[in-house]
Write a protein that binds this DNA or RNA. Structure first.
Lengths: 156, 156
DNA sequence: TTTATATATCTTAGAACTGAGAATCACACC
DNA sequence: GGTGTGATTCTCAGTTCTAAGATATATAAA
């Protein structure tokens, strides 16, 4: 009978994985639709938001914050620079490194669209009351932390 | 003071959106690492799992289940067919439509790797106890449902 | 100093899609 | 029987990213 319990646990985990994916997709669709109105992707918005709240960041820091590869950061910053929203700045201390920083145009844009974007997210998450959101935050935090720390099947 | 409350609510929503994204990414990384061992992507695995549990499906049904565009389904089924895991079957009733069905090889593969994959997901979600998972399932379900039903900022 | 190793970014090819539109067929209505 | 409308799949160009490796610089040890 030990297997019967374990079987049920696995089923429950699969169920959670499915509803988690669906919830993520549904909310992401809202985020996408919002930033698309300003010609941005979610990732681009993420970079600009990080720079807006933290100030200039080295490309490696952006990479870790946005969870893309090093090549992805290069591509992203290139695109944002081409739009005139972000610029590269040499790092004086370390000549391999660059900072990414918002241009005045970029700062003006993110300052303008951030509140509306936050409101869109809030609307998308409106299915939960504040107390339920608090629960969800706690659960997702432990879930994410544990998953990130657990070694993957085929060696971390 | 009404704004102060609303401001806090928005902040809470943003926090939830962040931890939800991180949790999703962390778990997805596990799922990816597992299916990659067998040369599959998560989406390919999703198609095969759906066909395994539901039997042959019309391409449109696969599309809705996996959440990709119509072009994406064509591309996906082409890939799986090239690997000999899935085949297209004409629909007798409707000559526009095709079914996707597992080949014997495909069925053998999914039957072999599914339990291990389920175990990997279960391990990734191990940060939560069964009771917490139950809570998370309920919360994510209402969250997802509401987000999917809510019209997007710029018109559904 | 030289050497080795680690870090930070960039380059390149290609994977995995999307979006828009085309082609084909089904179905209801005049 | 034709005709319009909608459903189903495919095509193709373009977007966004990854993986692997190259390049340049920093850091530490010998």
């Amino acid at each position: 009978m030990q297997d019967a319990v374990s079987e049920k646990d696995v089923e429950q985990s699969l169920k959670l994985w499915v509803v988690l994916s669906r919830a993520f997709d549904a909310v992401q669709a809202h985020a996408m639709a919002d930033v698309a109105r300003h010609g941005l992707t979610i990732t681009e918005f993420g970079v600009m938001e990080a720079l807006y709240h933290k100030g200039p960041l080295m490309l490696g820091e952006v990479q870790r914050k946005i969870l893309v590869t090093s090549g992805g950061v290069t591509y992203l910053i290139d695109r944002l620079a081409a739009k005139g929203l972000v610029e590269r700045r040499r790092c004086e201390k370390d000549r391999r490194a660059y900072y990414a920083a918002l241009t005045p145009d970029g700062e003006a844009l993110i300052r303008e669209i951030f509140p509306r974007h936050a409101a869109a997210i809030d609307r998308a998450l409106g299915g939960l009351h504040p107390a339920e959101k608090e629960q969800a935050i706690t659960l997702m935090r432990t879930l994410g932390r544990h998953a990130a720390e657990t070694p993957k099947c085929c060696g971390e």
